[in-house]
Structure formats: structure tokens, C-alpha cells
Write a protein that binds this DNA or RNA. Structure first.
Lengths: 231, 231, 231, 231
DNA sequence: AATGAATGAGTTTTCATTCAT
DNA sequence: AATGAATGAAAACTCATTCAT
């Protein structure tokens, strides 16, 4: 983040590459167990040169968290603001969230595992963003209860169930593996929506409506900008 | 695992205390970020004295994992072997799992976050036990599909949904907080069972059957024994 | 063995200096009793900087052993291959060995005292080289018996006597002291050759033949090069 | 050595056992590399109890040195004082020295390898005793030159050759192996005496005279008191 | 006569970071 | 834009020694 003044054009590109490589290492070995020397080695840079690009190891962590949370919040806000049925919006949000997870699995590992290594301001901002994301989901669930789609549930506990179901996925999912984000979103939401719904609420056409919505919008529901060059 | 021969009566007690304290520190800061010196300080012991009780830092991790997995597998095996409806067994298992999580939240943090720091034999044993637990759940779900209680689902994906829902709980739950294990088990299973069930399968009396079962058995479905016998 | 890629020109020089200093300390105090901190202090380097140059304490030992054994074996092989009387070759080998010992007395102390601290591959290689050196001597002694210069002796015991006589010298010899390598070689070989010889074998002109041989060859029979090229 | 007042009868016995066991460990692993805990384990004693018998680790070393040097000096003095031909006395001393080495090979290893770990008074006494031993040998060699048995040699260098030959033996000899002390003494002295002798001096009957001398004296030429129970 | 428990300085090695060039 | 060199603190772990009981 602190960008010394007067840098050439390649600076930011190289910097982003380094963050990519750090994310992969942190994900595989953990933040604390990964050394600066190791990052330098993977980046093909001596330790001294590495510090020309990054300001500290913790800063790398901050950037990785940002890369996860910023696009996630952006798409969550966008979806929440849609003029659609709350259940449909939850379904779209589910897919966006899973696309995020699958697109940058290593970043998400770090995000989930090592956020406690952040201190002070960085930690505070992270928590604020996490809470905003939770609130968006909880508001959608409340809306679904209010319009009669869902039973009356403890909204916070419903939100936590929604997050449990999605956020734990990074633990076992494999990108390019058996299931893609759409499949997972469909399955998770089937379970959750059927589990939450008011008996009167008809759920059968949900997937049709998702398809219809996504077709008419060119953009995917997602998510993170396309995966970085070689992360 | 009392190793060196000839220890006084207080040895094992103190040793268990140290593991308790280490678990708390590991949970708060992560295994890699917690130093032996810090554990010694909390235990009120100089580094040298600490090593009189423990054999290595990694061994501490092993013991903590054991404290989580051993009682968990024990109760899982016991519940799986019951001569009861698979759905009821899943519901009992849900509660046992959540009781485990709530009883030793710090241990579970370590269990979930730092298992990758184990090496060699320890790592292999851990993975084997994890797989056994997953298999028990998957077999119960398959049984529920076979007897018509649940729709036909991908058994592995159903199992992963079950685990997502439960295992992520440690991230936000507070022992002695708003919800106890029974409440969470009831809510989670309502969502999952309704979400998974065959439309024909009647789910309303599940909680009555749970209560009945638990009442006739003196023992709770749980869980971690209040203090570990000798782990 | 310059390991990490990309080192400045001074690196190898400094590295060799450190090995020199370590050899002196090891010789004076023993390998096990010399701490890395002490080496750093003598080298004028903080512990961290020391490890920029060396890979481990044991590796220092390996390098020291190498500095002794490599030139020793090289000259032993060269001398053994000469087309000369076996007794003359033994006499030349004696001098080369003693020159080795005197040229790097501290290294030889370490070599003789601390080789048992080596483990695994390093230990195996050391033993292999020691055995090769012993075999060269034993073969020369056998040749001298076969051509009638020496009485029939147990070849192995003769070789051990030869080595006893030479290898124990490091215990008391002082470089630049009363006796140089040539004197010692002459005295030792007089004793040994007279002690071993067949009564018929004429020994009086041995030293003349040594002088003649060394004069016609510009190179000395030795020995350790004054400073190791890149060991 | 510092023997706290008021000890039971078993004290000294146990103490000697501990020194035996320590000598074996020191010989195998080196003094610096052997821990007090290891000695305690071999002795079947907790560390605390060990210190009831020994005053310090260095003191163990002192005692081991003593066990080598005391009997060695005793027999050296006795042999030197004999009213016999100096060459015969050298031959007897050779055998006594080799018997010493073979009888307590582990002690001799420690004596040769780790004497530099001694400090202050202990070190001084050791050096004094070593010098006395060397003087005895040198005086015998001088006597042999004076009576015409040996050529005129540098007496100190002759003594050093004698010691080289004998003292290096511990490096490779195996008790109960191919060669016993008598054989080695005979071979070494044949080499040395033939190598040192005046051409006029007749050496052929030396071994007969040794046998005769030893037969008429019941006592062996040696040496160390019989090997300790189980060292 | 012996022990279990404790200590504190010691060990080798690694770390994130800095800086002159 | 990058490097080689250096640092000092910290890592996990071991050591010889002590002492109340």
C-alpha cells in the first residue's frame, strides 16, 4: 500500500505478482510458517529486492485479505441492491460467494486462517468488512421471512447457517474438481431454502429464475477479477 | 503418554494443565505464532522446567488433536452402532459433535487450524481418523436415502454439507453464549433434514424421538468427558 | 561448495577465512565444546551473519576434514603411482604426510579428534577415504616385502605401525619448531625401514635417492597447497 | 574425590561403578557430547541421585585420567628401577603400556581425547604426570645409547617415536581382537630396537630374556588393576 | 540414599528487516 | 531496480547443576 514515489511502470505489476506468489505460499504453509526468504525465492528476487516492492510481511497479508474482501463486498452490495425476490438474491449471492472462493482458493485459505495475525487498524477494517457482509445476508434472510418465503427464524442464526454452509467449503473444495460454483450454489441453496422456507412457498422454479436472470444480464454473478497471470 | 520413568503423582496433573494452557494460546494466536517461552510463562515455568513435562512443541499439538478426536470418534462410533432410524442417529451425532465443539472450543480451534503443522505418523493418523468420521456420517446419510427418508443425493456432497454446517460453528460460537449444543443441533438438523428429506418423510416428530431417546438413556449423547482421563 | 546462488566476489574468501578460524577453535577446544557464538565472535560476525556464510556447524567440520583428506589422498595417489622402488615411495609418502600435518596442524587436530561427530553420508565418505589411504600404504609395504626389501611381516600390522608413528605426531609437534617434515620423515623412515628390512637390503643410500628424486622433480613430494584453492 | 563425610559402605563401590559407566560413554561419544542425564540413565540413577555420588562432570573426567595415569606411572617407575639392561626395561615398559591400553581401552580413549577439557589444577597435575612418564622413557633410551646398545639419537625424538608407536594404538586396537599386548609389544619393540640399535648390538635374544624375566617374576609386567566388574 | 522438580544459561539455527552500493 | 551483506532478536530445545523432601 505505501507506494514510494517515483516508480516505473512495471512496479505495480511485479508487486501484484509477488502478492500472488505469497498468497500461494501462505495458503500451503500458513502465514507464520512461511519465510520472507521463501517468497523471494519463488519470486526470483533476493530478499533485499523483495523489500523494494513490499513494505512488510504483514502488509502482504493485508493485501491478500483485501483481494478477497473487496470484490466480495462489491458483488454482495450489487446483488443486495437488485430489485428481485430476496430468495433469488440469496441464491445469486451464494453463487458469487462460491465463485470467489473457487477463483482464488489460496487467497481464501489465507483469509480464513490467518486473519488473526493482523493487528490494529488492519484488523479493525477487516472485522468491519466482515460484519457488513454478514449484515447483507442477514437482511436478505429477514426480508425473505417478512415476505413470507421463509419461516420465522432467528435471523442471526439463519445467517450463520448460511455462512457455515458456504464458508467452510474452502476446506475441501478443489478448483477444477468435481463441483463448480454453480453446482454448489444450487445444492446448498436447495438445502437451505427448502430447510428455511415457509411450507406455502414454492421453491421449484428458483433455478429457472436464476438462469433467466443470469442470461439477461451478460455479466456473471461474480466476483473476483479474473485470476492473476500465474497464481 | 507419560514417557520418562518414575514421575511423581503431580506430574500428570501438571502436564494436563500445561496442555490446557497451550491449547488456549494456540487457539488465540495460532500454533506457529506461539512460542515455547510464552507457554512456559503462562504455565509459570521456566523453559527448562517446561520440557520436563512435554517432549516437544509438536507433541503438544498431537495431544490437543487427540483430545478432540478421540472422544469425538468414540461417541460417533457408539451412535452409528445404535439400532435406530438413521435420521435420528444423524440428529444425535449432530448434537454430540456440537457438544464436543462447545466443550473444548479452544482445542477445536487448534484442531481445525493447525493440523497441517503435524508431520509424518501424527499427520497420517489424524487424516485416517478424520476420514473415519466422515465415513460414519456419509454411511448414515446413505442409509437414510436407502430407507426412503432422504431424497437421492450425492452422498459425499450431502456429507460435506452436513460437515460444513457443523464444523464452521467454532468460528463464531461462544460457550455459554446465546445457543447451546442442543439448540444448534436442533436448528441445524431441522434445516438439513427438511432440506434433504423425501417429501413423503415425516419430520415433525424427530425432536420428540430425540428427547425420548435421551431420556431413556441416562447418558447424554455427548461428547467430551469433562476432563480427559489421561490423554 | 558455494551453495546459495549469487554471491559477491568476497564471499568465498570470507567463507574460507571463517573455516580457518573455526578450525583453530575446534583444534584448541574440541568441536563439541566450541559454540557457534564463539566462532562468530572470532570472525567478527553476529550469529546471523555467520549463517550467511556457513550452512551448519557440522558442515564446517566436513570442510575441515576435506581440507586434510583431499590433498593427502591426492599426493598419496600420485606417489603410489610412481615408477620407483616401494621403499622410496614409502619414504616420499612419509614426507608428504608429515608436510600435511605440519602445514595445517589445527586442521589435523580436528581431523583426528572429531571425525566421530560426523554423521551419515559425511561419515561414510570420510571412512572410505581413510581406508583408501591405509590401503595405499599397506600395498606399498606388501610390495616391499615381495621384492625382498622387507622381511615377511603381517602387512596390516606393518601398516598400522607406519601410521602410528606418523599420525601421532600432531599430538606434540610444533610448526616452525625443532623439526621440520623432512627431518621427521628421515628419522621415522630410518627407524621403520631398518626395523622392517630384510638383512640383505641395503638402506644407506635411501636418503640420497630421495634427494635425487626430489631434485629432478621440481615439485616437492608434498602436500597441502599453501592455501586451499576452493575447498 | 571430595567424599562427603558419613557414607555407607556401598558408597565407594557404587561411585566406582558410575565412573566405569561414564568412561564407557565418554569413550563412545566424547566427553562434551555426553550428558549427565545419559550417565544417570546407564547407572540406573536419577540425575539428583547421581550428584550424591559425583561432585561434577569434570570430576568424572579427572577420575578417569587418574585411573589411567596412576597405574601406568606406578608400573613405569617400578620397571625403570629394575636392575636390568635398558633395552629389556624398554621392552617391559612397552608391554606394560600396551596392557594398560588394552585393559581399559575406553579410559584411554577419554584420556587421549578429552584431557584438554580439564582446567586449572587438574590440568597441571595431568601434564606433570605425563612429563614424568616421558622422562622415564627418555632416560631409558639415553641409557641404551650410553651403554652402546643404541646408536646416538636425539633422545627426545627417539622418545617421541616410542610414544607415537605405542600411544596411537588405542585408535584402532580391539580388545580381544587379533593382537594382544604381548604380541604388539614384541612387534613394536622389534621394529624400534632394530631401528635404533647400534649395528654391533645383538637383538636376537631379547624376547628370550623377556620371557625369562617374566617367568621368574610371578607378577605380570602390568598395569591397571583387573578390569572393573562390567565396564 | 535417592528423587522429582526446577532453573537459567546454554545450544544451534532461523527470522524479518535494513542498508550501502 | 536490485543486490549482497549484516543484524539482533527469537525460535525450539538441552545442559549441568541444585535442593527440598
Amino acid at each position: 500500500m505505501p507506494r514510494p514515489p517515483g516508480h516505473g511502470p512495471g512496479f505495480e505489476i511485479k508487486r501484484q505478482e509477488i502478492i500472488d506468489q505469497a498468497a500461494e505460499l501462505f495458503a500451503r504453509q500458513g502465514y507464520a510458517a512461511t519465510g520472507i526468504a521463501e517468497i523471494g525465492q519463488v519470486a526470483g528476487l533476493a530478499k533485499g529486492a523483495l523489500y523494494y516492492y513490499i513494505s512488510s510481511k504483514e502488509n502482504l497479508l493485508v493485501e491478500i485479505q483485501d483481494r478477497v474482501l473487496r470484490p466480495l463486498l462489491t458483488s454482495a452490495r450489487r446483488i443486495a441492491a437488485l430489485d428481485e425476490d430476496p430468495v433469488l438474491r440469496l441464491r445469486l449471492l451464494s453463487q458469487a460467494l462460491l465463485e470467489n472462493i473457487l477463483a482464488r482458493l489460496d487467497h481464501v485459505w489465507v483469509y480464513e486462517h490467518d486473519h488473526r495475525h493482523l493487528r490494529g487498524t488492519n484488523r479493525a477494517r477487516l472485522l468491519r468488512q466482515r460484519r457488513e457482509f454478514e449484515k447483507i445476508i442477514q437482511d436478505l434472510l429477514t426480508a425473505a421471512m417478512d415476505d413470507g418465503s421463509f419461516r420465522k427464524l432467528d435471523p442471526r442464526l439463519a445467517m450463520l447457517q448460511f455462512l457455515n454452509m458456504h464458508n467452510h467449503t474452502y476446506q475441501w473444495v478443489k478448483p477444477g474438481g468435481e463441483w463448480d460454483a454453480e453446482t454448489l450454489a444450487r445444492e446448498y441453496c436447495t438445502t437451505l431454502v427448502v430447510g428455511f422456507r415457509n411450507p406455502a412457498y414454492q421453491v421449484d422454479d428458483l433455478e429457472d429464475r436464476v438462469r433467466e436472470f443470469l442470461a439477461q444480464r451478460q455479466t456473471p454473478a461474480a466476483g473476483l477479477p479474473p485470476a492473476p497471470p500465474d497464481a
